[in-house]
Simulated assay, not measured.
Amino acid sequence: MLALWTVLLLFSAVQSQGCWNPRDVHIGNNCYTFVDKIHTYSNARAYCHSVHASLAGVQSAIDANFLAANAGSQFGVTNGDFWIGLSRAGSEASFKWDDGTSVTFTNWGPGYPNSQNYVAESIANGRWKTLAGAAELPLVCSYDPKEVITTGSPMKTTKVTKTSVVPTKQASTTRGTRLQSGSTNQSPSFTTSQPVSNSCPQGFKFSKLTKKCYIVVMYGDDDSYPDVPTNAPPLTREQQRCTKVGATLATIHSQEENEFVRTLFPENVSYCTAGLRNINSSSSEGDWEWIDGTKMDYSNFSPSFPKPNDSIVQIGHGFWVTYTRTTPLEGVICMK
């Protein structure tokens, strides 16, 4: 473990250098995004594709140790696994990297690979194991910042590498139509199975506690929305989604309200953004305020959150996490 933390110290000076976001870490030719959100393998890959990256490529023992050390630091744990971008189509097939590069280095732990097909790395020692794709783990994305053309924000980035990454399409669910991550020129979809109650519009769900109507809108792509300045306040883009359905971003002021909004999540959506934002990113813990100007009088942060430099709050499996942006595969909680 000492060797891992030595690697972390050696490379701490290159964090964010040339990367899209201040929390990304730069080593060699790549930047790495550490996502402390659990996903199945296919959803983890789609998550990275939605921000124009790939599940992490690992090309050397230095890379492997570097990722393990940083994952432990950023996820706030000393054990556990995270997804990287190596997988195969079946037990007899060859392993391939998500970004299309050749497999010239492997770092298998004892007894691996086994009959499973999706590769995770250990935080404890940087070794790899093969797991079932249905396992839910945090993940690491990677990208080469020199191989992109930016037009204002990472979400509008166009890859120009020879090997293009096609976002994984997500199937529709019985609880509502979801945007496919590669779609363009489409309005965000929202759940439609909820019954109309107390004069709520179709698709909204009524809360007896707050006497308001709520809905989760899938974030989708930015193509059907007006551009916003890069220095716009946090949640400006998310608020666009709510405005389009005649609502505003939801505020949460009690445990009961928190539990209620979790019942709105469409199937297979793990994180949804609420209307809480950091109005002072220079503070060590931030200054969190609801989009309607009210102060945070209730919170349900997971351990190690909120994190410095993060700007928004997302509701997960009963706990809140902080992050820099919402991605197309996630939801936005709206109310009216």
Rank of each mutant, 00 (worst) to 15 (best):
A3N: 10
T6H: 11
Q15H: 07
C31Y: 01
T40Y: 02
T40D: 05
A46Y: 01
S50N: 07
H52M: 07
A64G: 03
L67P: 02
A68N: 04
A69E: 04
N79G: 12
D81H: 11
E92N: 14
A93P: 00
S94N: 15
P113T: 11
V119G: 04
V119K: 04
S122R: 08
N125R: 05
K129C: 01
L131M: 12
A135C: 00
P138N: 05
K146V: 07
T150V: 05
T157S: 09
T157M: 06
V160M: 11
K162E: 05
T163N: 12
S164G: 06
T168Y: 10
A171H: 12
S172D: 15
T173I: 08
G182S: 11
N185M: 11
L209K: 15
K211G: 06
K211F: 04
Y214R: 02
I215D: 01
P234K: 02
P234W: 05
R237H: 10
E238D: 13
T243N: 15
V245I: 15
V245R: 08
T248M: 09
I252W: 07
Q255H: 03
E259W: 00
C272N: 09
D287L: 11
M296P: 03
N300T: 10
P303S: 09
P308M: 07
P308A: 14
S311F: 01
V313P: 01
Q314M: 15
H317S: 15
T326P: 02
E330V: 04
I333H: 00
